[in-house]
């Protein structure tokens, strides 16, 4: 059984360790607008922010190129940083980079590594909570979008998507649609039908 819950709503009369929940007086409450799956005791935010984690793949934009480090915009309250000596080529302000999160330091600065510059293309920001659906189980959704639009699509856990080549307008439309309908069932099937209907257009 799953249901939509709001901040402050009671999830259980006992303390449960669930992400996005708070425990007070041995009871568990939601701290977000989300879908609570009672059987799996999981709470998935419907709207949401990205909390950086080690190994997350993100898409950033270089904001400032200094001698020793680059500061990177991550579409998030958390600042990204790349240490210059770990990068082979110089990055430029405005470069779109796909990176991995190496660690989060005590000031909540996100230390990034292995930047890969994504040249040209379109960048869009969607709600980070929708990113898992854009990727899909075992990359099925993203593969489907790439096959159907012939676009190269890169997805960052920070809610940023990059697309280049093929039918970018169609890829954008589908990604925005997934953002709207991320909480529904049968999404993969609907995207498939949608892509088929656009074939040859």
């Amino acid at each position: 059984m799953s249901r939509i819950v709001v901040p402050g709503e009671l999830l259980a009369e006992k303390p449960l360790r669930i992400e996005n929940a708070i425990i007070e007086d041995d009871k568990t409450y939601s701290s977000v607008l989300g879908v609570y799956h009672e059987d799996k005791t999981s709470l998935i935010p419907l709207e949401g922010l990205w909390y950086p984690r080690r190994d997350d793949i993100v898409i950033g934009i270089v904001e400032d190129a200094r001698l020793n480090s680059y500061s990177v915009d991550l579409n998030s309250p958390y600042k990204g940083i790349i240490i210059a000596k770990f990068v082979e080529t110089r990055l430029q302000r405005g470069d779109v980079v796909e990176c991995e999160v190496k660690e989060i330091d005590e000031t909540k600065t996100v230390v990034l590594m292995r930047p890969k510059v994504l040249e040209g293309g379109k960048v869009m920001d969607i709600k980070p909570s929708k990113i898992p659906r854009v990727i899909g189980k075992a990359n099925t959704m993203i593969q489907q979008i790439q096959d159907g639009t012939k676009s190269t699509v890169m997805v960052g856990m920070n809610g940023r998507v990059w697309a280049r080549g093929g039918n970018v307008a169609l890829a954008t439309e589908i990604i925005l649609m997934i953002g709207e309908e991320a909480h529904t069932k049968g999404l993969t099937e609907r995207v498939k039908t949608f892509l088929a209907s656009k074939k040859g257009v």
């Binding site: 934009i61 904001e63 915009d73 302000r93 405005g94 779109v96 960048v123």
Partner: peptide, 8 residues
């Protein structure tokens, strides 16, 4: 200009 706006 913010780099994101520049890229877009």
């Amino acid at each position: 200009m913010h780099p994101l706006r520049q890229v877009k």
